[in-house]
Amino acid sequence: MSKGWDPAIADLDGFREAQQLAYRCAEAIADELTPGISERETAALMQHWLAANGANDCFHQPFAWFGDRTAFRGFIGFRHFGGFNPAFYPGSRKLEENMPYILDCAPTLNGYTADIGYSGCIGENRILDKLMDDLLEYRVLILDLVKQRKQLSEISQAVDRLCAKHGYEPRHKAYPFQVLAHRVEKLDADEKKHRSVLNFGVRNIGKLVGDMTKGRREGWSPLWSSGHASDHPPTPGLWAVEPHLGFRGVGAKWEELLVVTEEDAFWLDDDVPQVRRWLSRGLEPLAKAA
């Protein structure tokens, strides 16, 4: 196991900057969204924004999902190809009034990679509001159980149970390998523009594959799910955690970096849109706990 990981303050600052950049991107593009824009156009806007603001690599290129695609209903819900499904990629779906959307981007800035998810809609959507309110409980639950050093599979199963209690579907199960979270690692800082293959950043995926090899030797997995591969206590490092809830045709998620140290765990940054939203909606007592 990667023992003795003690995050350098400088490194955490670097990751925090990358995460803030990613959220600023999502908020900036969300402000520009108008009915009629397509998922592909939106993803491209995010890509340009990130490049213009200093990102030179990514974990994955920006994704945008509209309408019932936010809930990954239908074919994408199957387990084909280990969960890897092309329906993932931004499509031609056009945004409409009151339609939920999710923006998901994972830029690398100065070698630090973030991965965020941002939910919203133009207009009103009561179901989306409820999902986004309830997402707070997941943030509290996950951190709480990680602090208790529960096995990651157990934590993921607890998330599944909370979904069942809420009456939601855990739609992160539609992600590759049904992950609730995945590791991110520091890359070398440089100015070059780096390549992506099939929208995934070559260097970051390389790191992930490296983690998988290392984890297989050491008995842990960089892909955090409800399965046996995650039957191990929280591994120190940075985890991009992304609970994604679905109810009927509406989906919502957030994604944030969780810092796990030898003894403790904390969210990298509490100044993120979803936390600000919970506070502004008076969900404060819980938000404080988060």
Binding site: H166, F247, R248
Partner: peptide
């Protein structure tokens, strides 16, 4: 509590 949650979801619909 479970019944109330179901009712709440039904109201959302």
């Amino acid at each position: 509590a479970a019944a109330q949650r179901s009712a709440e979801l039904a109201e959302l619909l």
